[in-house]
Nucleic acid binder design. Structure first.
Length: 563
DNA sequence: ACTGAAATAT
DNA sequence: CATATTTCAG
C-alpha cells in the first residue's frame, strides 16, 4: 500500500486498522497470530499459500501495510520465494515485509540475513508474541517518513514534523550519520520498547569536505582544545561560516531489531547505534562550524539544504524536523559568535534580531538570542559596574557612544562542570573587543587573567581553550554588516592587557609603562586608550579610516546602512 | 512585529 | 542556583 506520512497524519487511532498480510502454512500458527493481531485492532488477511499471498499482494497492494511471512527454514526449497518475488513487485515496495520463522538456531543467522537482504524489514522469531507483533506498525511509519524524505520531499516535511511530535516518534536516523551523539537527559517512551537516544546533528561538511573528514574532526573535537583553536584560527569572516545549533532532540529510532532470544540479535548491531559509545566526546550539544563560503552574505540556512543533500541519509534533528522546543546550548563557540555579533553591532545597539542575523547560526531563533542577550546584559550590569567605576572612570571620551560605557564581563560566574569535560569550558561572558578597562576577569584559577598583547590578535592561544572567551576575537569582516563604531575597527580585544595596564597604571604609572602604552596605542589605533591619553581627533580617525580603505562611516545607530 | 524583562521551567 | 524558555507589557 502506498502509504505516506500524509496518510499517516490522517490516520486516527493509528496503528489501529493496520492492514496485515499474514502468510503461514501452518494453519494453527496463522490462526494464533491472526488472533493476536486482531486484538490489537489490526486488520489481518491470512494466507496459507504463498502463491495466493503473492497474487493478492500484487493485485491489491493497497490492502496491506505490512506483510508477515513465514520463512520455512525447514524446507530447503522455496523458503524465500515470497520475499524474492515480492521484492520484484513494484507495487509491493511500500509494504513492509516481516519474516518470521521457526528456526533451528543453527541457521538463524544466515536465514535472517538472507531475509533482510531480500528486503525484509525485520525478522521475527517464532513464537510471535504480542510484543513482537504489536510493534510492526513502526515499519509503516518508518516507511512513510523515509519515503517523504527521498521522494515526496518538502511538502511533506511539515507533515512529518507534525506526525513526529504527534506520535512522538522520531525519524530513524542512520547510524552512519550519528557520529555526533548527544547524551540526552530526557527519555521518551515511544512504545514499550521505546529507545531513548538523542542524536546530535552532524556538522555539515563543507561542500568539499568529505564525511569522513568530518568524523575525524569530530573526534578531534572530542579532545576539545582542537575545537576552540579551530575556531580561533580562522578569521571571523571565514569562520563566518554559519554554524548550526545543535539542539537537543529526542530521537527515537525505529526499532528494527529482531528479538530472538535464543539466537544472537543478528542484524541489530548494525542498525542500532549505541549513543553512549559514540559519544566518546562528551561534548554536549555543540555547534558545527563547517567551512563555508565566506562570500555568501545570504542566509546561511540555505546551506542547510546543501548539507542535507550531501548526506542522503535522513536525519531528523538536523533537518529541524521536529520543531519541538529545542534547547539551545550556548557553547563557547556559540557564545563567542554571539559576542562577536554584539561587538559588531555595538554593545549598546545590539538587538536580538540583528545579532541573530550576524551570528548566522542555523536553527537559532531570535528568542534564543534575546534570552541570551538578556542574560548577557544582566551579567554585564551586575558585574561590570564596580570594576568600571573603580578603575576606569576616565572621562576620556569625546565620543562616548563609541566606547561602551560599561565594560563587558569577561568571565561570568560560570562553573565548568556541566557535565563537560574539564577541557570544555563554558563560555565566559567575555566581550572580546570590549574595552580594556572593562574586563573583569573571573578567571578560573588556572586561567591567565590576561593575555599577552602579542598573542592576541588573529592568533590562537595554544594554551587557552574555550575559556578564552574573553579572548580576543578576530576582526570582523567588513561585510554588509560592518557598521561598527570607529573604535571597534579592529575588534581586537586586549581587555586583558588593558585590564592589566589599567590596574598597573592606576597604581604605578611608571614611565616605561606609559611608554609601552603609548606605543601600543600608536600601533593599535583601534584600541581604546587606557591611560589618560586623549582620543584621536575625529579627523585623524577619519583619515586613518580612509587610509585603511574605509571611506564611509555609517552612523552608529543604523546598522543596516550600507556604503 | 519586536524588544526587553519578568515569570517559569528545567 | 544557574540557565534557558515562555510569557507579557510597552
Amino acid at each position: 500500500m502506498v502509504f505516506t506520512a500524509d496518510d499517516l497524519l490522517r490516520w486516527k487511532d493509528f496503528p489501529k486498522g493496520l492492514r496485515v498480510l499474514l502468510l503461514d502454512e501452518d494453519s494453527i500458527s496463522v490462526a494464533q497470530t491472526k488472533s493476536k493481531l486482531e486484538e490489537m485492532h489490526y486488520i489481518v488477511s491470512t494466507f496459507s499459500n504463498e502463491s495466493d499471498a503473492l497474487t493478492e499482494l500484487a493485485n491489491k497492494p493497497e490492502n496491506f501495510h505490512v506483510a508477515i511471512v513465514e520463512v520455512s527454514v525447514g524446507k530447503s526449497y522455496g523458503s524465500f520465494r515470497f520475499l524474492e518475488t515480492a521484492k520484484d513487485l513494484p507495487t509491493v515496495t511500500d509494504v513492509w515485509i516481516i519474516s518470521a520463522a521457526v528456526t533451528s538456531n543453527i541457521h538463524c543467522l544466515s536465514t535472517m540475513m538472507k531475509c533482510i537482504a531480500l528486503g525484509a524489514a525485520e525478522f521475527l522469531q517464532k513464537p510471535l508474541s504480542e510484543d513482537k507483533l504489536r510493534n510492526i506498525w513502526q515499519h509503516v511509519v518508518h516507511k512513510a517518513f523515509n519515503a517523504g524524505e527521498n521522494a515526496v520531499s518538502k511538502p511533506l516535511k511539515p507533515i512529518r514534523e507534525t506526525v513526529s511530535s504527534m506520535i512522538q516518534l522520531q525519524l530513524e536516523t542512520t547510524k552512519v550519520e550519528q557520529k555526533n551523539i548527544l547524551e540526552a537527559e530526557n527519555e521518551i517512551q515511544v512504545h514499550k520498547k521505546g529507545h531513548e537516544q538523542s542524536v546530535a546533528t552532524d556538522r555539515f561538511p563543507a561542500p568539499s569536505t568529505p564525511q569522513l573528514k568530518q568524523g575525524e574532526r569530530l573526534l578531534d573535537d572530542g579532545e576539545c582544545h582542537d575545537q576552540s583553536n579551530f575556531l580561533l584560527e580562522k578569521e571571523i569572516e571565514d569562520q563566518g561560516d554559519p554554524k548550526f545549533v545543535e539542539t537537543t532532540c529526542n530521537n527515537t529510532v525505529v526499532e528494527i531489531t529482531v528479538k530472538a532470544e535464543p539466537s544472537p540479535r543478528c542484524e541489530e548491531g548494525g542498525i542500532m547505534e549505541e549513543d553512549d559509545s559514540t559519544d566518546g566526546s562528551k561534548t554536549g550539544n555543540r555547534i558545527s562550524s563547517p567551512p563555508q563560503d565566506k562570500g555568501s552574505a545570504e542566509d546561511s540556512r540555505i546551506d542547510a539544504g546543501n548539507s542535507k543533500k550531501a548526506s542522503l541519509i535522513p536525519n531528523s534533528c538536523r533537518t529541524n524536523i521536529n520543531k519541538k522546543k529545542m534547547k539551545v546550548d550556548w557553547t563557547p563557540e556559540l557564545h563567542k559568535r554571539f559576542v562577536q555579533a554584539i561587538e559588531h553591532l555595538g554593545v549598546d545597539q545590539a538587538i536580538p534580531s540583528q545579532i541573530l542575523e550576524l551570528m548566522k547560526v542555523e536553527g537559532l531563533t531570535r528568542h534564543n538570542v534575546a534570552s541570551h542577550l538578556q542574560k548577557y546584559r544582566m551579567h554585564r550590569r551586575h558585574i561590570i559596574p564596580r570594576e568600571d567605576d573603580r578603575r576606569w572612570q576616565l572621562p576620556r571620551d569625546t565620543t562616548p557612544r563609541v566606547y561602551p560605557q560599561k565594560p563587558v564581563m569577561a568571565f561570568p560566574p560560570y562553573h565548568f562542570g556541566h557535565g563537560f569535560s574539564p577541557s570544555q569550558h563554558y563560555p565566559a561572558w567575555g566581550h572580546p573587543s570590549s574595552h580594556p578597562s572593562s574586563v573583569q576577569v573571573w578567571g578560573h584559577p588556572s586561567y591567565p587573567t590576561w593575555q599577552s598583547p602579542e598573542s592576541c590578535p588573529w592568533k590562537t592561544y595554544p594554551g587557552m581553550h574555550a575559556d578564552a572567551w574573553g579572548c580576543p576575537v578576530m576582526p570582523m569582516p567588513q561585510g554588509p554588516y560592518s557598521t561598527f563604531p570607529q573604535n571597534s575597527l579592529g575588534f581586537q580585544s586586549f581587555e586583558d592587557k588593558g585590564n592589566l595596564l589599567g590596574n598597573y597604571i592606576d597604581l604605578h604609572p611608571a614611565e616605561e609603562v606609559i611608554d609601552k602604552v603609548v606605543k601600543e596605542a600608536i600601533s593599535k589605533p583601534w584600541l581604546p586608550l587606557p591611560l589618560g591619553l586623549k582620543p584621536p581627533s575625529t579627523e585623524s580617525v577619519l583619515s586613518e579610516l580612509h587610509r585603511q580603505g574605509i571611506s564611509c562611516i555609517p552612523p552608529y545607530k543604523n546598522t543596516n546602512s550600507s556604503c
